[in-house]
Amino acid sequence: MAYSQENIAIMDSIIARYPRKRSAVMPLLHFVQATEGFVTPEGIELIAQKLELETAEVTAVSTFYTQYKSEPVGEYHVGVCINTLCAVMGGDEIYKSVSEHLGIGNDEVTSDGKVSLERIECNAACDYAPVVMVNWEFFDNQTPQSVKDLVDGARGGNPPAPTRGPKTLRTWKQNSAVLAGVSDGLAGEGVSAGEPSKLGLKLSKEGK
């Protein structure tokens, strides 16, 4: 049984946030991923029971959203943006090289379970292109080499820190818990804004 009394209590507190409990489906699915790494049958059945839904209704939701995984992903889930702008600026090359480097393709996991790879769509950081997300943390202005180094670090248990994020890269499960609304207290870490974000402000101060 993956769900301890403490887990159940967290799930109940998630449900309590909403005026109607069905709204808790998505954070609960994030929480299932925080607990088990992916959306398991046990998780679906537990959510269905808690929200008085049919299991099919939970399945319908979990399969709609790409962040919910029906198979295990790596401890470090690497998303390479291959939407047009990032792809053109180097995302395609990055994806190709890291895929070859790891020997895995889209939605696949390394045999040690450490790293998985996904071709992701625009992640709202285009001024930092090419962008790579690891466990949905920003790794800005990447190159094929930087991403190789990144995944090597991750596999060796020593991943680099996100460009704009906490001082230490958290695991897939840990970050899934954040998305479920379970705070890890790391909001204060990292820059308030990256350089491109501040560019207009800087130019304005320069009177431009």
Binding site: H30, Q67, N123, W136, R170, V178
Partner: peptide
């Protein structure tokens, strides 16, 4: 959902 650090900042 794909922006964990933004989530942290807003939640905090």
């Amino acid at each position: 959902g794909e922006v964990v650090h933004v989530f942290r900042r807003v939640q905090q």
